[in-house]
Design a protein around this nucleic acid. Structure first.
Length: 703
DNA sequence: GGTATAATCTAT
DNA sequence: ATAGATTATACC
C-alpha cells in the first residue's frame, strides 16, 4: 500500500499530491499498472535512466512484496513479466494480460480479441484499463473508472486495502464486496455492436428495461391487510395469458396487451408485479412448479446462503428444511434436511426432462454481481443440468441444482448481442461429496437446434393441466412497435446515456457505487441544501452529529459518502462527447445550405429521440404522481367495497370469495379511473372486460 | 375443501 | 435486525 503522501496523477493528469499538472518530462509511468506519477512528488525516485524504464510505482512495488506468490507467482509479477517481454507487441501483451486475468484459453479469447477492437463508434474508449479489451460485464468505481467485473475482482482480490487500478483512490468496501454491473454501459456497447458491419446476429434488437408499463390492475390489499400495505397484498390481474404451469419463455402471443412477450431484462418493482407478468408466479416462494409436471421458474433472492451465482450458470438450493411455525413465511435457520419432494421434486423433473426454467433475480440477493440494483428482473431461461443432495453450510442436507443458461436473448449483464451458445458444464467440486445425484439421461426437451442456430423445443412443449390466465385477447390498444429501426445508431446510442433525472443526455456523467448514472449537476442538485452531517437535538441538548442519509434517486442505497467527492466517469463522458461531435459534423455536412447553427444539432437529435420514447419513459419512472394516485384509488375503491359488501368475513375466506372481491375491486378501480384522461379510459375498458368475463366464471364456480 | 408451506414486505 | 401479517397454491 502506498503511503498517504504517495499519490499518482488523476484522470486529468493532475498530481494528487501537489495538485499541479506536471509537464510531460516530469511524469513517470509505472511499468506494471501504467499509472502516471509526478516525479517531484515521489519519496523515492529512480536513480538511473534504466531504472525509469522499468519503474514500479509505490503501489506496485509494495504490492508485489506484500503478496504471497499465487500458484507460481502473483498476478503483479506475471503482469510484469509480460510487460517486460520485449519479444511481444503491444497487442500480444494485451492479449496475454487478458488471458492471465480471465483465465481463459487462447482459443476462447481469439474470437473476443477480434470482436474487441471493432467498435468503430466507441473506438477504444470502453476498453478495460486492466485487460485492455472491450469492457465485459462493466463495473464503475466511484472515482469514475470502468473495469470488467472479472478484472476488477482479480485486481481488488490481490489487495488488502482496495484501491482503483487507475487512480489509486480507495474503493469503498461495499463496492469492492458487491460490485454491480453498470447496465448503461452494457446497453451502450450492445447498441454500438448492432451497427458493426461484421455483426451477424440476426435482426437488430434493442432490449429495453421496461418498467411494467400498461398496468391496468395493481396489486391490492384487503381491509384486514391494509395496515401491512403490500406485505399482504392480493395479486392484481395476470397480464399474460399463459397457464400457471406453462414452461419456457413467454412469447408475444401470450402477451395480448403489449404483443411483446416477457423480455429478458424486464424489471418489476416487487415479486407481486413479477408474478403479474407471469415470469414467476409464487409471490413468496423461490420455486414455481409441480412435482408431477416440472418447475416453471425460480427466483434468486439471496434466501439460501449456499447459492452461488456465476451469471451464465449458478448453483441453486432447494426449498424447505426450515421451521415455519408461528406463521413465518421464511426462516433463515435450517432445522431439518431437505428432500426431493414438492418444489424440489418439480425442479428434478425439469432436470430429467431438460425443460427450460425461467429465472428471475431479485435485488435482495446481495452477494451476486448479477443481481439487479433494484426490483426483480427476468433473466431468461436456464436448464437444470444436474441435481444432487449434500450438507449445506448450516450442516443440514440441502438439494442442489446446477443451472446453465440457454436463452436466445443475451443476458442483461453481457454486451453480446446474441443469446447463449451451448457451453460445456462447469466443474463442480462439491459433487464429490454429493448423494442422490441426478443427471439427465434422455435428450433434453429444450435444446440448441444447430441448423436454426437457436434454442427451441425439440420435444413438444408439455401441455398444461391448468386453465390459462384468460386475458383480453386482441381487444386492447395497440402497443408501440419495436422501434429498433428508428433513428440512427448514434442517436440510439446517445439515448442510452440519458440521465434519469433530467432525461437528457448526461453532462459530466457520474456513476454511483450502486451503478446508476446521472449528470453531475442533476445528482448534486437533487441533494442541494442538504449537508452531509445533521445535528440531532434532544430536549435542548445537542447530541453528536449524525451522518445525513442521501438515497440514490434510482434506488434506495445511501450515496452520501460518494456525494462528498463524486468523480466524473471520464470514459463515459468521452464516449458521449465523441458521439455528439460526430453527429454534429454529420448533420452540418448534410445541411450545408443552412446557416451555422449546427451547435444545436446533437441536442435536437436528443430531444427527438426523447420524444419518441416519451411514453415509455413516463411509465418507466417508478414514482410518477399518476401511479401513486392510482394506488390510492385502488385503496379507496377497496375501502368502499368492504363497506358496501360487508366482506370482513372470518379468516378462512374461500378462494372463490377472494376472486369475486378482486373482480369487484377491479371494476371499482376502473370507475375511479374514469375521471382521468385517454390513458385511463383504456384502463377502464380493460377493467370492464375482465370483469364481464370473470362474472361468467363466477357463475360456473358457484355451481 | 382443508392444511402446510413458501427466497415477501413493511413496521417497529 | 427482526417479528409477524393473513396470500397463493400444491398436494392430500
Amino acid at each position: 500500500m502506498a503511503q498517504v503522501s504517495e499519490l499518482p496523477c488523476d484522470g486529468d493528469g493532475v498530481c494528487m499530491v501537489c495538485k499541479q499538472k506536471p509537464a510531460e518530462g516530469e511524469i513517470l509511468t509505472c511499468k506494471t499498472c501504467v499509472t502516471p506519477w509526478h516525479v517531484a512528488c515521489l519519496a523515492t525516485r529512480p536513480q538511473t535512466l534504466a531504472d525509469t524504464a522499468h519503474w514500479d510505482c509505490p503501489d506496485c512495488s509494495d504490492l508485489s512484496g506484500a503478496m504471497p506468490a499465487v500458484s507460481g507467482g502473483g498476478l503483479v509479477e506475471k503482469i510484469r513479466a509480460i510487460e517486460s517481454d520485449a519479444s511481444l507487441t503491444d497487442r500480444e501483451k494485451a492479449k496475454r494480460r487478458q488471458e492471465l486475468l480471465s483465465g481463459a484459453t487462447e482459443a476462447e479469447k481469439e474470437t473476443e480479441m477480434n470482436a474487441g477492437g471493432v467498435l468503430g463508434i466507441l473506438g477504444d474508449r470502453f476498453n478495460c484499463s486492466i485487460c485492455m479489451q472491450l469492457l465485459d460485464r462493466p463495473v464503475s468505481t466511484p472515482c469514475g473508472h470502468n473495469f470488467c467485473l472479472k478484472c476488477f475482482q482479480k485486481w481488488t482480490g490481490q489487495q488488502r486495502m482496495k484501491t482503483c487500478a487507475i487512480c489509486r483512490k480507495m474503493i469503498p468496501a461495499k463496492m469492492a464486496r458487491e460490485p454491480r454491473i453498470n447496465s448503461t454501459i452494457v446497453m451502450a456497447i450492445r447498441t454500438a455492436k448492432t451497427s458493426e458491419p461484421s455483426y451477424s446476429g440476426g435482426p437488430p434488437k434493442i432490449y429495453h428495461f421496461i418498467h411494467n408499463q400498461d398496468r391496468p390492475d395493481k396489486a391490492f390489499t384487503t381491509e384486514r391487510a391494509k395496515k401491512t400495505g403490500k406485505a399482504n397484498a392480493c395479486s392484481g390481474k395476470i397480464f399474460v395469458t399463459i397457464p400457471s404451469d406453462f414452461l419456457g419463455p413467454i412469447t408475444a402471443e401470450y402477451d395480448p396487451t403489449r404483443n411483446l412477450g416477457v423480455m429478458v431484462g424486464e424489471t418489476w418493482a416487487d415479486r407481486m408485479e413479477c408474478r403479474q407478468w407471469g415470469a414467476h408466479f409464487p409471490h413468496v416462494g423461490g420455486i414455481g412448479g409441480q412435482s408431477d409436471h416440472g418447475a416453471q421458474s425460480v427466483a434468486l433472492s439471496g434466501g439460501y446462503e449456499d447459492d452461488e451465482d456465476h451469471g451464465e450458470w449458478f448453483l441453486y438450493t432447494g426449498s424447505g428444511g426450515r421451521d415455519l411455525s408461528g406463521n413465518k413465511r421464511t426462516n433463515k435457520k435450517q432445522s431439518f434436511d431437505q428432500r426431493f419432494k414438492s418444489y424440489n421434486e418439480a425442479l428434478r423433473v425439469s432436470c430429467r426432462e431438460g425443460y427450460p426454467v425461467r429465472v428471475v433475480r431479485s435485488a435482495k440477493e446481495k452477494r451476486s454481481s448479477y443481481a439487479p440494483q433494484e426490483g426483480v428482473r427476468y433473466d431468461g431461461v436456464y436448464r437444470v443440468e444436474k441435481c444432487w443432495r449434500k450438507a449445506g453450510q448450516q450442516g443440514f442436507v440441502v438439494c442442489r441444482y446446477l443451472f446453465v443458461r440457454c436463452d436466445n436473448d443475451p443476458a442483461p449483464w453481457t454486451t453480446d448481442n446474441q443469446g447463449d451458445q451451448p457451453r460445456p458444464l462447469p466443474s463442480i467440486p462439491e459433487l464429490m461429496q454429493a448423494t442422490d445425484i441426478t443427471e439427465r439421461t434422455k435428450s433434453p426437451a429444450w435444446n440448441f437446434d444447430e441448423e436454426k442456430s437457436l434454442w427451441t423445443w425439440m420435444r413438444p412443449q408439455p401441455s398444461s393441466r391448468k386453465a390459462s390466465c384468460d386475458g383480453d385477447n386482441g381487444k386492447t390498444k395497440k402497443i408501440r412497435k419495436n422501434r429498433s429501426g428508428t433513428g440512427s445508431v448514434k442517436e440510439r446510442l446517445l439515448k442510452e446515456f440519458s440521465c434519469i433525472i433530467c432525461r437528457k443526455v448526461m453532462d459530466l456523467p457520474l456513476t454511483t457505487p450502486c451503478a446508476h448514472n446521472f449528470c453531475k449537476a442533476c445528482l448534486e442538485g437533487a441533494f442541494a441544501g442538504q449537508s452531509h452531517m445533521k445535528e440531532r437535538k434532544s430536549g435542548g441538548r445537542t447530541l453528536r452529529t449524525q451522518k445525513n442519509v442521501m438515497k440514490c434517486p434510482s434506488c434506495t442505497q445511501d450515496i452520501s459518502e460518494f456525494l462528498q467527492n463524486p468523480q466524473v466517469n471520464r470514459e463515459l463522458m468521452n464516449v458521449i462527447e465523441t458521439l455528439q461531435n460526430q453527429m454534429k459534423d454529420e448533420s452540418s455536412k448534410a445541411k450545408e445550405t443552412e446557416d451555422g447553427q449546427s451547435v444545436n444539432s446533437s441536442e435536437k437529435a436528443d430531444s427527438e429521440s426523447s420524444e419518441m420514447e416519451e411514453q415509455e419513459d413516463a411509465v418507466s419512472m417508478n414514482e410518477t404522481p399518476d401511479s401513486v394516485a392510482e394506488i390510492k384509488e385502488n385503496f379507496d375503491a377497496k375501502a368502499e367495497l368492504s363497506k358496501e359488501d360487508n366482506t370482513d368475513k372470518p379468516l378462512n375466506d374461500s378462494g372463490a370469495l377472494h376472486d369475486s372481491k378482486r373482480r369487484k375491486l377491479s371494476n371499482d378501480g376502473a370507475k375511479a379511473g374514469e375521471s382521468g384522461g385517454a390513458e385511463d379510459n383504456a384502463i377502464v375498458k380493460l377493467g370492464r372486460l375482465a370483469d364481464s368475463e370473470s362474472t361468467e366464471v363466477d357463475v360456473q364456480e358457484n355451481d
